[in-house]
């Protein structure tokens, strides 16, 4: 893992990508910092930082696009996968290398609260805990981008699909708000979700019967809940989907001044999930 980590990190700074990423992100954070804090006089750097979330949806896929796709295109995966190293080690090494690159602008931004404190009253706890949150947010974005990259040989496709996925995730709250909080909508929504889940499960497990059983159980659950607990069930779908909100935890940190452990945990779980899926995607291709 350390060998892969070192190589990846060096490759980011052997090519332009590492520098461009660090420069662009630092520039944008600096702009927001200047506009909101230095010019606007708003005393929380956390607020300025939260404005840059959308930028990461574009910048992180640029960082992750080559991680897995390029290995396959240049056949270097043939080296990694025939060496005595585990796929998990490879994926983790790459992930940590990208996280390190991502950390550089974040570390630079650690100076901003100090600048604010020099000119007035800073609120270190809020600002630094938000920067801390952004570490986990970045980890989640990177793992998603990496998973997308593991699905294709083309860096371009990896970048575009990665950006679209992250944008969808950021627009999640708005999208979920379109779903009506009614029993019918919940029932239909859950049925679709169960159908998708059982389809994916059946395909990856190779047992259609398991998928059908899974979908059956889900359908029974949805119908029973709709009949027996219609009050709770009417908001169940929006409640469930709302759990995937990215801005929820960010707003808790930035606007509500709450150290949202649940949100932090959500970012961690998503990171772990997509790292796991990346490993599975490599294995699946190997043992297809």
């Amino acid at each position: 893992m350390t060998a892969v980590y070192k190589r990846e990190l060096r490759s980011y700074f052997n090519s332009m990508i590492g520098y461009v990423f660090v420069a662009a992100v630092t520039l944008v954070i600096g702009l927001f910092f200047t506009v909101y804090n230095l010019r606007g006089g708003y005393p929380y750097f956390a607020f300025a930082l939260s404005g840059t979330v959308m930028i990461f949806a574009f910048a992180v896929p640029l960082l992750t696009m080559k991680s897995m796709a390029e290995e396959r295109r240049s056949r270097t995966d043939q080296m990694l996968l025939t060496y005595p190293v585990s796929v998990t080690g490879i994926v983790l090494g790459k992930f940590l290398a990208m996280l390190t690159v991502y950390l550089i602008p974040l570390l630079i931004s650690c100076l901003c609260p100090l600048v604010i404190a020099k000119g007035g009253n800073g609120s270190f706890l809020i600002d630094y805990s938000t920067i801390f949150l952004f570490l986990f947010l970045g980890a989640m974005f990177i793992s998603i981008g990496m998973f997308v990259s593991s699905l294709t040989e083309s860096q371009l496709i990896a970048a575009v699909v990665g950006m679209v996925s992250l944008l969808l995730l950021l627009l999640w709250d708005t999208l979920v708000s379109f779903i009506p909080s009614t029993v019918t909508a919940s029932a239909v929504g859950f049925l679709i979700l169960f159908a998708l889940a059982s389809l994916i499960f059946a395909r990856s497990a190779g047992h259609p019967a398991v998928g059908i059983a899974l979908f059956g159980a889900g359908a029974i659950f949805a119908i029973l809940s709709a009949i027996l607990a219609s009050r709770w069930f009417s908001t169940a779908l929006t409640g469930f989907l709302g759990m995937f909100s990215v801005y929820g935890p960010v707003n808790n940190f930035v606007s509500n001044y709450v150290f949202d452990v649940k949100g932090l945990l959500y970012f961690c779980v998503m990171t772990a999930l997509f790292l796991f899926l990346t490993v599975q995607s490599v294995h699946r291709r190997q043992y297809r």
Binding site: S11, T76, L80
Partner: peptide
């Protein structure tokens, strides 16, 4: 096993020395 695939699996942004050192670490 040591394996040379049909298309050598080379990281073109490295020098042979760096590449082989990386390979030695992996091995």
């Amino acid at each position: 096993i040591g394996y040379l695939p049909e298309q050598p699996p080379l990281y073109t942004d490295m020098t042979p020395l760096e590449y082989l050192t990386f390979a030695a670490e992996l091995k």
